[in-house]
Simulated assay, not measured.
Amino acid sequence: MSFGQGGPVDSGGSNRSTPDWGALADRTAARNRRRKGMLIGGGALATAAVAVVVAAVVVNSGSTDDSAQDLPSPQTLPSEPQQPEPSFSDVSPPPPPDPRDFISTKEKDRAPLSAGTLFPAETMSTGAGSYKKGASGATKSCASAASSRLGAVLSRNDCDQVIRATYEKSGVAVTVGVAVFDTQTQASRAKNQAAGNIQSLAGKGVPSFCRATACRLTYNSVGRYAYFTVSGYTSGKPVKPSDTRARQAGKDVADYAFSRIVERGNRQASAAAAAQTG
């Protein structure tokens, strides 16, 4: 009895050793389905696990480390210690006194005042030559040292005294009259209201002049002093409008009076400055 590849054959003619290919196929398909489901499930689980890890990383990255929480915030950090402001002692000297202050009011203008202190020199020098000093003096009766019109102005503004001095050169004589007031305002007002003339002062080699004849007049003021000049010829000749000699002489003496008053302020300011530094 021979055997074929498939084994013995029974009487029915069917080969009992032959596998059931349909059942095998069904079982194989079922196994494949189970394997695929496991792979899919495992992949889903793996994906979910990765997602959990990523979420944990994200959450952890947003958290604050305990050590960082222990650090103080900028608002609670101690501020820098307050630095003391540098201090500088004032070592600069005080400003020097203003000379104008000492000739502007009676309260500050305390230096001795007379014809001798205001016009002490026996000559007055200018660029054009020298003038010789004639008579000088002071009076408390201001109106008596001036014409009626100017006398009224001096009295109205409460003149304290008038100091006069005469200077002469080559037949031209000039008398300057310095009217003294308590304040600068009074002196300025007297200058602005001036009319008439200061009376000429003869003596000490200078004859009478500028009496009942035309002469040259000037008016001005500085500080509490108003000063006036009258200039003309000792010969009695009238001064014409075109005359230059009398006009120049009057200007020279007026400038000299101004410089003497200013010098008075300078001396008192210098003395005050020396007292400050001493």
Rank of each mutant, 00 (worst) to 15 (best):
A179K: 04
S259K: 13
A145N: 07
P86A: 12
D255P: 06
F258V: 08
A145L: 06
R245D: 01
F119V: 02
N15C: 10
S130T: 09
T123M: 07
S17H: 12
S14R: 15
G250L: 01
D109S: 13
T105L: 04
D109R: 09
I261G: 04
P19W: 09
V239E: 03
P84Y: 00
Q161A: 14
A56V: 15
L45H: 08
S155M: 09
L39P: 00
N266T: 14
V9R: 15
T18Q: 14
K169Q: 03
L217Q: 11
T244M: 01
S61E: 09
Q193K: 11
S259A: 12
R247H: 06
G42H: 07
A187T: 08
A254T: 01
S79C: 00
R211M: 11
S61C: 00
G177A: 04
V176K: 02
C159W: 03
Q161P: 08
R264S: 07
T166D: 05
P19G: 11
Q82S: 13
A152V: 07
A48P: 02
G236K: 03
A46K: 01
R110N: 13
T277E: 15
T166F: 02
R33E: 13
S2Q: 15
A51D: 04
C142K: 11
S221E: 09
R31Q: 13
Q276C: 00
A274S: 14
R31P: 00
N197P: 08
Q184C: 00
L217N: 11
R264M: 07
V206H: 03
G41R: 07
Q83Y: 00
S259I: 03
G37P: 00
L113H: 09
R224H: 08
S170D: 09
K240D: 03
P81M: 06
N60Y: 00
R100W: 08
A226L: 02
G151Q: 04
A55S: 08
E85L: 12
G223L: 04
G129Y: 05
Q276F: 00
K251C: 01
G177K: 01
G7I: 11
A138F: 06
R149G: 12
A269T: 05
R264E: 05
Q82A: 14
S104E: 10
C210D: 04
L201S: 07
A272T: 12
D20G: 10
F181W: 09
P74D: 11
S136P: 00
P120D: 07
A202E: 07
V176N: 01
L217Y: 10
K36M: 10
S104A: 15
A246R: 02
D101M: 08
T126A: 03
I103P: 09
K108H: 10
Q5S: 12
S188Q: 15
R267W: 00
S259G: 07
R156T: 09
Q75E: 15
P112F: 02
E85M: 11
N15P: 04
A254I: 05
S235M: 02
P97I: 01
A173W: 01
P8W: 06
T166L: 00
T28P: 01
P72D: 10
V230R: 05
G203D: 12
V176R: 01
S148L: 13
A68M: 12
Q186R: 08
N60K: 07
P97R: 08
A179T: 02
F102L: 02
A51F: 08
L39W: 10
P96I: 10
S270G: 15
R110V: 13
A30L: 10
S63E: 14
S17F: 12
N220L: 03
G203S: 11
A254G: 06
L71K: 11
A145G: 04
D70K: 15
M38Q: 13
Y167R: 04
